[in-house]
Amino acid sequence: MNRYSKSEKAQIFAMLTPNLILFILLSVYPVLWCFRYIFFQYGGLASGEPIFIGLDNFRRLFTNDPVFFKALKNTFVYAAGKVGLVIPLSFFSAMMLNRKNVKGIGFLRATLFMPTIMSAAVMGLVFYLLFNVYNGEINKILMSLGMKLPVNWLGKDKAMLTVILIGIWGGLGNYMIYFLAGLQGIPQELYESADLDGVNSLQRTWYITLPMLGPVLKMILMLAIVIAFQDITSIMVLTEGGPVNATMTIFLYAYQFFFPISPGSIVTTQFGYGAAVSLVSSLVVGAVTVIYLILSKKLDNLE
């Protein structure tokens, strides 16, 4: 038996169509346009006709491109660092701010959410000034507290830590809002009956809040993982992937084959090779997402 009547079906299609058209025009078409060059050597309009080179872009990627593998490793380090810290932090922030009738709670929520609405490029620039080795405010504070030498925050040894910290700062408010929404959806009766049973706050969190947040947590984690893998803007402004590729991630690496990051850091435009790097990078993110979805099935279970 058909579940929907004809008019209902028409309504569904009418409502989906604008979205689908935009999705096809702005997402599917550009991706297909890009991926058609994976078998070609092509540098854009100025380079003349594309040259068919078969699987050579993949041969180069897998056998002769140490930068890609360094970027791949960096991407996992960045994603693990960012997700591993931002999720607990935003959860605890949400727990702290999930209170009613407390003076200033709205202001605190807005303050934590503020980085989310800031442009990542502006954020990168501001942090570039803050983390500046010589006259950055952070080093000035540390040195006024008695540290003798300035910390090279954006040097090759600490740059990854710095971009992770900035990633956390930028994402915290967003995930906190998701957690807040999830927390507010938990029926109060559960807490009330738990209180009657005499549970302490740690037990409340462990046995009620966390299990009840399962489906929300699953969605938040998936978003956080995918976003962390794709973060490039603040890294691009802050370090351009350097020094010596210390903060190069796979999508930033792919990006620079299509668009030079800055006039001084010109990498020869290579649409074909960039498309191959993008495809493999997308497959990596896809694989991680699938693995996560399989592993996280348990989080759906509210029993």
């Binding site: 050597q41 380079s47 002769n64 491109d65 930068v67 020094p243 010596v244 020869t268 435009t269």
Partner: peptide, 25 residues
Amino acid sequence: PQEINSQAVLVEGENMYNTIFALIL
């Protein structure tokens, strides 16, 4: 050669500037 046509000298791996910078560090 790379000034005449950058597409004619597509170096696999790091370019000269990034390589030399790594050596400098």
